[in-house]
Computed example of a mutant assay.
Amino acid sequence: MNQRALVIGEALVDVVHAADGTVTDYPGGSPANVALGLARLDRMAELAAWFGTDERGRLVRDHLEASGVQLVPGSDHAERTSTAVATLAGDGGATYTFDLTSQVPEVVLDDSIAVLHTGSIAATLPSSADAIAELCEAAREHATISYDPNARPTIMGAADQVRPRIEALVAAADVVKVSDEDVAWLYPGQDVTAAVRHWAATGPALVVLTRGGEESFAVTSAGVEVTVPSPQVAVVDTVGAGDSFMAGLLDGLWSAGLLGAGHRELLHQIDAQTTRDAMAHAARIAAIVVSRAGANPPTRRELEDTE
């Protein structure tokens, strides 16, 4: 049976305001970017999202389908397509404001799913969060569960309000990727690595902390810790970098034979070298993404050609 990745969450349009004053629409949304990244790595990727049939919705659909992402039927039943206005600073960093609605279309859970990934806004909005949490729980008998909080305070609300839901999703996941900025927002004043170590003790097999262009740090449920430096590149913008890292991490674990419910015990036993290899693979993909505009992850062929 061909194994697939099922990704659940928002697909939207990033309206990017560059430092030079230009404004460009890019298809995006954290979960959609993860699905796109996996599809470009030749993985069978299916996305359950919520966007419209308007002009921006067609932009989202065309972008995803052009790279082989399969859309769950009903994903285009929203009245309008959500947007994220990204304002870029001179160093390429982005800040966001959102106009977003979210629901979850009906999905099929079976043993063809190697991994169910979710995260970011849809996983915390009242209109979709409960359904996503229920699907994560139901999918555990079939698949690895992965989660990226990808916090967006301007739409998620106060950290105190959203923290319990994020912590519940972390505890229910097998693989978690989180940025240092997200941890700092969730736990102000606390050491970020200590928070990640705590998360790894609550249920996940692997928790990976990204520190932008510096490094990534991982801790496993068995206490194995790994640090991998980020490749140094000229940054155009950081849009989609974390999502591309997430896709690369899952791809690396997939190649190592560690995804799927039947491999959960092996994932909890992951060693330092396997962890390092998956993180380095993810970091290389993220470095390519920040070197060009928008959430534009590389294909498998591009990676092979640049090795």
Rank of each mutant, 00 (worst) to 15 (best):
M1Q: 03
N2P: 15
R4Y: 00
L6T: 12
V7R: 03
I8D: 04
G9Y: 08
A11S: 15
V15K: 07
V15Q: 10
V15G: 01
V16L: 14
D20H: 09
Y26N: 09
V34G: 05
M44N: 12
A48W: 03
F51H: 01
G52L: 12
L59C: 01
L59M: 13
D62W: 02
H63C: 14
G68D: 03
V69G: 08
G74C: 05
A78F: 10
E79S: 13
E79G: 14
S82M: 00
A84E: 09
A86M: 03
G92D: 05
Y96D: 03
F98I: 09
T101E: 15
S102M: 14
Q103M: 11
V108G: 11
S112H: 13
V115D: 05
L116P: 06
L116C: 02
H117M: 04
H117Y: 04
G119L: 00
A123L: 08
T124E: 08
E134D: 14
E137R: 15
A138W: 01
A139I: 04
S146A: 15
D148E: 00
P149V: 09
I155K: 09
M156F: 10
Q161K: 08
P164R: 08
I166W: 09
A172P: 02
V176P: 00
V178Q: 11
D180H: 02
D180N: 04
D180F: 11
P188C: 02
G189R: 05
Q190R: 13
D191S: 06
A195Q: 15
V196C: 14
R197H: 10
A201Q: 14
T210H: 03
E214K: 14
T220E: 03
A222W: 05
G223Q: 03
E225R: 03
V228H: 12
V228N: 00
V235L: 06
G240K: 13
G240E: 03
G240H: 02
M246Q: 13
M246E: 09
G248A: 11
L250C: 01
W254H: 12
S255C: 11
S255I: 10
R264F: 08
L266G: 04
Q269E: 15
D271Y: 03
H281V: 00
A283I: 06
I285F: 07
A287M: 05
S291N: 07
S291C: 02
E302P: 02
E304P: 00
D305A: 15
